[in-house]
Design a protein around this nucleic acid. Structure first.
Lengths: 364, 364
DNA sequence: ATGAAAGCGCTAACAA
DNA sequence: TTGTTAGCGCTTTCAT
């Protein structure tokens, strides 16, 4: 392949010097073994490096003839501009780190898809990292990722270590916090209020006449957002004079199987429970399967409500009531806000509440 | 924060010059507004930049006293080394692009988690990109990603455009192709034979006594690997003298709901079908739900077998027979092989067949 | 429209 | 052990 290319180039530069060195694996002094650089292209095209740079990045600034010649050489040599060098020279890396707590929840994956559907097309590269829900890991990741001198950064949640915040401020780049809401965003913020969701679910279940209402979740000590939903729920129950102590947690990662276990444990401790709000639909689906297995009628004997409206919720039977959150759209919106800022535009609405909706189905 | 830091540093450099400029937002000629560079650290610590570099990257090469002093300054200033500059200077970016067809399949996500569990800890940064199963998108992504001068790269599948292959060869970096097997890997290859899986499933179903055996899948025109499983299945059916034309495809992305639709369509066209091999467990679960809904007894009237052994397979009832593939382990292994190569070690076994296993459950 | 010079921030290689 | 020099490959700036 390399050989073929060099021959083709040769035809366009048919002088004795070129022919002479070709046998050494060189062409006009350009080694064919080393990665080809802008200088190589410039030499062979017989122009300055700046013209090559322009022909590639701002084609309209170069005359048609020259641009054509240069791009032909680029093609022949298989030249791929070095973004690392370009980034250093221009001070803009086009890198956008995304720190997610996990990839194990379809919510974060859907969000990531939203980002992927916009950022790469605009020339930005996603640097992926997962924090495992641990603030100290997140802090380290932020430090590492800022080393890439990113043009912007995406964080999950609104709780970050003091040092993390200070590093981000020093970086002077657009930052967007997603999935949750705060009154004091580092910079920009799109998400929804988990506390409000907890309240709404509480009100919904109370209105349906349930009295003994529980919450069950995974990764209890780490998932701050789930904790906020629990708080909202408990607050509402308290106000209504209902018991609010029915909480079943696990430290394991979320799964359908864990949903079964959580329900079993909960029913053993509190057989009187009438309705359970789960931290996500996988757990809720597991609980539903367990209930069906045990012959517990849903929702007559036990109501189940999930979270995030993952596909499974609508597909099981009875179908699961759930809370829809616009995760894919959140990804696109986050990307859009970042892009505008990275282009130098102003973004006036720095905090966006994307809201949520309870989708009532057969399970409650 | 910045102010506090500068004061603390000041104590260690208590000379009149420093005090004089501090009010201008400078300290020893170091602006506090610009991002802090290695030169800033060097100046304030009173050492050369190389010593700072060493104190950070090869601490053992610097005397204790000096290292301590330097790291203190690093801390005070909040200095974060610029990897872009470092990468350019050292010729190693520590970037590892990963091109996946989609994030919509839990297989790829699990694989990605496997990578994430190893690469970042070793100082490598994952650059994520999705090709939407399109070779031409993949080719473009490869070109873009090679611009980051990565130290290695991960590709999905073994079918890549000619230009893609040639670019990868020119890059002279370790390449690993995952998920599938080929006799002619670009460089390294871990995966399993989808054709063999198709054959094995065929033999399994034949042995169970099924005669009318179908395959149903999504993204038909793009998912080459699913197509190979179909080929294997059909080959086996053909050999056994059984009908092999029962194939139901859709161009939509995979989902539980699509599984329902696929089964409906298949049964309408071929009510005689006795067993269906689905392209993944989401589809299979959907089909199962649909069958239950229609009162079709599984497996007595219809056997269902899924692929990838996602969690849902074992949790529905009847539980789904499926084919386990070690996707998380594949991620770790791919990371491990890449890491060894990136460290300059040799990797002798360039092609690894990770195999698969049919997990028999109640649905077949 | 094109090119030359300078330098982005860091590290390899060498010198002291 | 530490510092100096010279780039890495590109783009900015300024000249032509």
């Amino acid at each position: 392949m390399t050989k073929t290319s060099s021959r083709q180039v040769l035809k366009k530069n048919q002088d004795s010097a070129a022919t002479a060195v070709q046998s050494q694996g060189e062409l006009l002094g350009v080694s064919l073994n080393k990665r080809v650089s802008i200088t190589d292209v410039a030499k062979i095209a017989g122009v300055g490096t700046m013209t090559v740079s322009r022909a590639i990045n701002r084609p309209e600034m170069v005359s048609d003839a020259l641009r054509k010649r240069i791009l032909a050489v680029v093609d022949e040599l298989g030249y791929i501009p070095n973004r690392v060098a370009g980034g250093l020279a221009s001070g803009t890396s086009r890198a956008v780190p995304v720190i997610l707590p996990t990839l194990n929840h379809s919510v974060y994956v859907a969000f990531l898809e939203g980002l992927c559907s916009l950022l790469p097309d605009q020339g930005y590269q996603i640097l992926l990292a997962t924090s495992e829900y641990k603030p100290e890991v997140e802090e380290k990741l932020i430090a590492t990722l800022l080393g890439w001198r990113p043009d912007g950064i995406v964080l999950s949640g609104v709780n970050h270590s003091k040092r993390a915040k200070s590093m981000l401020k020093q970086a002077h780049i657009p930052v967007i916090e997603i999935m949750d809401l705060t009154d004091h965003p580092i910079d920009m913020n799109v998400g929804f209020s988990h506390r409000a969701i907890g309240c709404a679910v509480g009100e919904y279940l109370i209105a349906k006449g349930y009295k003994q209402i529980a919450h069950a979740g995974s990764f209890a000590q780490h998932d701050v957002r789930a904790a906020h939903r629990v708080e909202g729920l408990q607050e509402t129950l308290k106000k209504a004079g209902l018991p609010f102590g029915y909480v079943q947690n696990s430290n394991q990662p979320s799964s359908i199987g864990l949903g079964r276990e959580l329900l079993s444990a909960l029913l053993q401790r509190h057989p009187e429970v009438q309705a359970v709000f789960f931290a996500n639909d996988d757990l809720a689906a597991g609980a539903l399967f367990e209930a069906v297995l045990r012959g517990i009628r849903v929702p007559q004997e036990l109501a189940i409500i999930g979270f995030n409206d993952q596909e499974i919720a609508s597909q099981v039977s009875p179908a699961l009531t759930s809370v829809v959150t616009p995760r894919f759209e959140m990804g696109r919106l986050a990307a859009d806000m970042l892009l505008r800022r990275m282009r130098g535009e102003r973004v006036d609405v720095k905090k966006m509440d994307l809201g949520f909706q309870i989708i009532e189905r057969a399970s409650s």
